[in-house]
Design a protein around this nucleic acid. Structure first.
Length: 800
RNA sequence: GGGAGAUUAGCUCAGCUGGAAGAGCAUCUGCCUUACAAGCAGGCGGUCGUAGGUUCGAGCCCUACAUCUCCCACCA
């Protein structure tokens, strides 16, 4: 028996335990077709926010739909707990930098800290009702994951897609590591545009250069002008003298210089930006690297050596002013590249690092992208845009501690790398020794002290899921996986890198489908994020005050890929819906006390009408879900459900209550209808509300779990009753309106109802005459004929 | 500057391959009706961002513009 009132907090705990104890979501391969989800392992960089609930709940809805559709659903959960995000969390909590704590101690802190947070994540996502197989949960920093990441790396080395090179790289002075292009974030900052006079050594002529980075004056290796620039082309071939630092550099020509930008003369430093690197390579310019790894000017630079970058900037401007070289200084707001993990401006450095080839295979990555179905489809354009515009190979070396180590040592004598043997993985080169000698005969080695980029590991999630390289693996069933789910911000990282790896390892797409969710925005329409501090409600608080089912209602509303506002209104709507589901179930349960399910087809007219409505709804419900449109599917389901409650139940209740008046068979027809439809409604709603539907299902249908049932269409589509049934409801609605307008209760009898109806509608009403009269409390009904539709001639209320 | 999306009722959002503008919230009016007052029945409320175009017919298709959001590129 269902309780008088539903207690979500109690019930949700109960079913969580039940699902867990009975392995309801456990994945075991069998003869069913597998549907596999590659859901994002959340980055462990702090507590999750409600945006996480949103996108993970949507993925779960798909998993649940596929399970109900008869697939054997593979839906593991993972934690992305290695790399910079976790390191920064620990540094923040400790109030110390990794380098000050020391590698070993720091790594231990990272393990401990991420464990604590993972338990919290697991608790929150569990409570949200994710139907994940937690026994298949993975961590990207576990020995198994390290092994697979290293194996993946070695495979790329073998195939020639990973290479080590001394090369310019993006460098973060705050995190003390190199980073990849995908980790950049643009930020608008206020700065100054400094117009500085340089002179031509040969003629003494002055010309002006505009720069936002005067501290780079000591790093200038060349000055460029556009060969078509009439004002400056005569400078080409001459020598520029740089004031203050007193250095001479050549003046050269390049088409890339924009004549109308700044002064039309550009200083080329090593390195101030991407173009500098291009020119440096193109013209084989000398290298003047003037920054230290922690953001200072190197000591060998006279006067400015040892200063912090910004300090040096101020000082150089001062010195330029003093020497009379500054023409003017303008305030400027412009966009700079910052590191997404810390928000600080990035610099460039030159060092030996591991790269994965991106630039030579862009076309292949685009092609693989074309083979994947993107939902919503315009997200494909975002992917294409990123791949087309990417300018660097993927630098995967990070000069950090907590992550997957490179299974590589370098020969002390000749510097040649020696790789770990695959059978020895996972290895830690700092502890383990390589197998054998270098080809030069030397047997002394230096370990690679770097760790891999976070994305180098998380791009392995399909590999982790299939247990790549293991004997007893899932390659057969998970190549490719069915669905990747994530928010749009990581298309360029997680999605892209996963495609890269899948292409290099298997020459195939990693998944058949990608489902991209939108963002949660605050009441001003701005994306919720920790850095903006506009995420006010905590997930736990939300789940406690609203119940998981209601939170999921909110998460499941709206169109796929569309941003959604955090809205109390939507939560209220969810609360009402969940409440209604419980109440109508209670009503139905009450009328099923003596019900015995047996084959029966001779339904009453109104019963066929509602069955037909359901059938029609169910078709579009399934269609939407097959397109991953969980929100639109919920819309049609919800609409049907309220029609079921407010119209059908109101009609059938008289028949259910009073068999002596209506007869046993019509009552059974009603019972069979509500029994059948409630079951199907519970199935449909179970995708969104796994808890309350289980509660009701267990009380009325007594199966193992509603989540292990199978969606099946009705035997018939009951199309014939749809149109005239709808018209009858219209008439009922009109008559109710008359009662409401008269300020009387809906139980007020109608003394006389006079209708003109078309022949088809007349038949319908006559077939359901008892239901019709009972619903409106009609004492006398007069039906007259008309050609088309109906006309309500008279509604005479009994106002006694 | 490049790419993507959005713009529909006071608010939050649906609106399918073009065919008489929808829901919830809010607001107003009734109603304790043998599941539900966290309910039920009704009412008010919209030049579908602007301007053109295609069409018998446009919220939907095309063009331009405006505003907002997201992603990218711009450190000269």
């Amino acid at each position: 028996m269902l309780d008088k009132k539903y207690n979500p907090q109690e019930s949700e705990q109960k079913w969580l335990a039940y699902w867990n104890d009975n392995n309801i979501y456990k994945f075991t391969p069998d003869d069913r077709q597998v549907y596999s989800l590659d859901a994002p392992p959340p980055t462990i960089s702090g507590m999750p926010h409600i945006g996480h609930l949103f996108s993970y709940a949507q993925a779960d809805m798909v998993a649940r739909f596929k399970r109900l559709s008869g697939y054997n659903v593979f839906y593991p959960f993972g934690f992305d707990d290695n790399g910079l995000p976790s390191e920064r969390l620990v540094e923040k909590e400790q109030g110390k930098k990794a380098a000050d704590i020391g590698r070993e101690a720091f790594n231990k802190l990272c393990y401990d800290t991420t464990n604590v947070y993972e338990a919290k994540y697991k608790d929150i996502f569990g409570r949200l009702g994710l139907s994940s197989d937690w026994t298949k949960a993975f961590k990207t920093v576990s020995p198994e994951s390290i092994k697979i990441s290293q194996l993946s790396f070695l495979d790329l080395v073998e195939k020639g897609y990973a290479y080590r090179k001394e090369s310019p790289a993006l460098w973060c002075n705050e995190c003390l590591t190199s980073i990849a292009q995908a980790e950049l974030e643009t930020k608008t900052i206020k700065t100054t545009f400094n117009y500085v006079n340089f002179s031509v050594k040969e003629t003494g002529e002055l010309f002006t250069i505009a720069t936002t980075r005067p501290e780079l004056l000591p790093a200038i290796v060349c000055v460029f002008v556009n060969p078509k620039d009439k004002a400056h082309k005569h400078l080409i071939g001459k020598t520029a003298h740089i004031p203050v630092v007193e250095v001479d550099v050549p003046i050269m020509a390049d088409d890339k210089v924009a004549i109308d930008k700044g002064t039309g003369v550009v200083m080329c430093c090593t390195f101030g930006d991407q173009t500098d690197i291009e020119w440096w390579k193109k013209y084989n310019l000398p290298l003047k690297h003037i920054f230290t790894d922690n953001g200072r000017i190197i000591d060998s630079v006279p006067k400015y050596g040892g200063m912090k970058i910004k300090e040096a900037r101020r000082q150089i401007v001062e010195d330029l002013k003093e020497g009379g070289y500054i023409v003017k200084i303008e305030d400027l707001e412009h966009e700079v590249q910052t590191h997404e993990r810390c928000g600080l401006e990035v610099e460039y450095t030159v060092m030996s690092q591991w790269f994965i080839d991106i630039m030579n295979h862009k076309k292949d990555f685009l092609k693989k992208g074309d083979e994947i179905k993107w939902y919503p489809s315009h997200m494909h354009a975002r992917y294409n845009e990123w791949v087309k515009n990417i300018a660097w190979d993927w630098c995967i070396s990070r000069q950090r501690y907590f992550g997957v180590p490179f299974p590589v040592w370098y020969c002390k004598k000749c510097g040649k790398p020696i790789f770990a043997r695959k059978e020895d993985l996972p290895v830690n080169p700092l502890v383990d020794k390589p197998h054998g000698k270098c080809s030069c005969g030397c047997s002394e080695f230096v370990p690679d002290t770097d760790v891999m980029d976070t994305w180098a590991t998380s791009s392995c999630t399909p590999l982790l899921n299939m247990r790549y390289g293991e004997k007893d693996n899932y390659e057969k069933i998970l190549r490719p996986m069915s669905l990747r789910t994530n928010a749009s911000e990581i298309i360029r990282t997680w999605d892209f890198y996963t495609i890269v790896k899948s292409f290099y390892h298997f020459n195939e797409r990693p998944w058949d489908n990608v489902m991209i969710s939108g963002y949660i925005t605050d009441s001003n329409g701005q994306k919720l994020s920790k850095s903006k501090g506009n995420s006010k409600v905590e997930p736990t608080e939300l789940l406690n005050t609203q119940s998981a089912d209601v939170v999921r209602y909110w998460a499941g509303s709206g169109r796929l890929g569309t941003d959604i506002m955090f809205s109390e209104d939507t939560l209220l709507r969810g609360r009402k819906l969940v409440n209604k589901i419980f109440n109508v179930s209670k009503f139905i349960e009450m009328h099923l006390a003596d019900y015995e399910d047996k084959p029966f087809e001779d339904f009453e007219y109104v019963d066929k009408w509602i069955l037909g409505c359901f059938d029609q709804m169910q078709k579009s419900f399934v269609k939407y879900l097959n397109d991953y449109e969980v929100g639109l599917a919920l819309n049609v389901l919800e609409k049907f459900f309220w029609n079921f409650c407010d119209n059908y139940i109101e009609i059938v209740k008289h028949r259910l209550y009073r068999p002596e008046e209506f007869g046993q068979k019509p009552r059974y027809s009603g019972q069979k209808t509500v029994y059948t439809l409630l079951y199907k409604l519970l199935q449909d709603f179970s995708i969104y509300f796994p808890f309350i539907t289980e509660e009701i299902y267990q009380n009325i249908y007594h199966g193992r779990s509603v989540h292990l049932t199978k969606l099946e269409p009705l035997k018939h589509s009951y199309k014939n009753e749809k149109q005239n049934g709808d018209l009858m409801v219209e008439i009922i609605s009109y008559a109710r309106g008359e009662k409401t307008n008269a300020n009387v209760t809906l139980k007020t009898p109608i003394k006389n109802l006079v209708l003109y109806v078309c022949p088809e509608l007349r038949k319908a009403i006559e077939k359901s005459i008892k239901d019709f009269k009972a619903t409106l409390f009609i004492e006398n009904l007069t039906l007259s004929n008309t050609d088309e539709g109906y006309k309500i001639e008279k509604v005479e209320l009994d106002l006694q």
